[in-house]
């Protein structure tokens, strides 16, 4: 086996290794977390964050960046906690409308050749605005079935673990292994050639944004299932978390190089970082700073692997 392959493998393994390291550290600091109940608690929020990270990854795959994702997830959470609870039909229609809005955004960005960063920046105002109108003060209620799903207690393995594994595998097969996924990723790698081969770039962009919107909606629903209520800024942090998670998981900003499994692992790693820091009894002033430091550390390791790859 050539050195090149091992460096490549290392790169793929890096997210998993960082996850293992942080998990080991948590178990060491707080052995009680090494139980069904402990893991359930630790990974409580893993599902919505993983879904949001997947949503961001689909946008990254077509060389765009979504700076409105946190606001969007907040909005879908508000819709879930109000309309979907009170009048399910209206709620479903509204959430479907959200997915359509994302698809339309993809079309707009493609047709007018717009920078996604700025468009989504503007849209984040719009999403928060709608959310404020729907739910001016924190409140609402989670629909029973979502609540029931999110608090499932399957035997042996805690629900969040099963859920994120399922998410990772489904998206992996859908995007990385399917024949249709090839075209979607190809459009990120060399749009012109995909277009010359007879595919519509507009359709690709619309599809990717719609899928992203769909996972954004799922994220909002899952979040409400856990928190049982919502507010207009509930998922504000998800924009940055999702970008960082996807990058941590090996996705790149351009060229259609993404990894769904990595994205889910990256999201979970970031989530655990928070718990790890609180177990460390770190001065709370340094909590955010330490998260930044860990992100820098992992990226530094990736760089070292890349460098050894180049040398060999």
């Amino acid at each position: 086996m050539s050195r090149y392959l091992t460096a490549n493998t290392m790169r793929t393994l890096l997210p998993a290794l960082s996850l293992a390291a942080i998990l080991a550290a948590i178990f060491y600091l707080q052995p009680r977390t090494m139980s069904y109940f402990g893991l359930n608690l630790l990974l409580n929020l893993a599902v919505p964050i993983a879904l949001a990270t997947i949503a961001q990854m689909f946008i990254l795959c077509v060389n765009d960046l979504d700076l409105s994702l946190g606001a969007f997830v907040s909005l879908t959470a508000c819709i879930t906690a109000t309309w979907l609870y009170d009048t399910p039909v209206l709620g479903v229609l509204a959430l479907a409308g959200c997915v359509l809005a994302y698809a339309a955004l993809g079309a707009l960005i493609h047709l007018r050749n717009l920078p996604s960063i700025v468009v989504t920046l503007g849209m984040s105002f719009v999403w928060v605005g709608i959310a404020v109108l729907i739910l001016p003060t924190p409140g609402g209620k989670a629909p029973e079935w979502i609540r029931a799903l999110m608090t499932l207690k399957p035997a042996l393995i805690p629900f969040p673990i099963i859920a994120v594994v399922v998410i990772a595998i489904v998206v992996h097969f859908g995007l990385m292994k399917s024949a249709a996924g090839v075209v979607l990723r190809g459009a990120g790698g060399n749009p012109l050639s995909v277009e010359r081969a007879g595919w519509s770039l507009l359709k690709v962009k619309v599809t990717m944004y719609a899928i992203s919107g769909f996972f954004g909606v799922l994220s909002g629903m899952a979040l409400v299932g856990l928190t049982t209520s919502a507010d207009a800024n509930i998922a504000e942090r998800y924009t940055l978390l999702s970008i960082a998670g996807a990058i941590l998981g090996g996705s790149e900003f351009v060229g259609g190089r993404v990894s769904p499994i990595g994205a889910v692992i990256g999201a979970v790693t970031l989530l655990l970082t928070g718990s790890f820091l609180s177990f460390l009894r770190l001065n709370p002033d340094w909590q955010i700073g330490a998260q930044g430091a860990i992100l820098i550390l992992v990226l530094a390791m990736r760089m070292l692997i890349n460098r050894s790859d180049k040398r060999s």
Binding site: V182, V183, G189, N190, A197, G256
Partner: peptide, 14 residues
Amino acid sequence: SLCPNLTVAENARI
């Protein structure tokens, strides 16, 4: 006009 992020086979599929 190949997609650099895809494999040779995946490019054939395009």
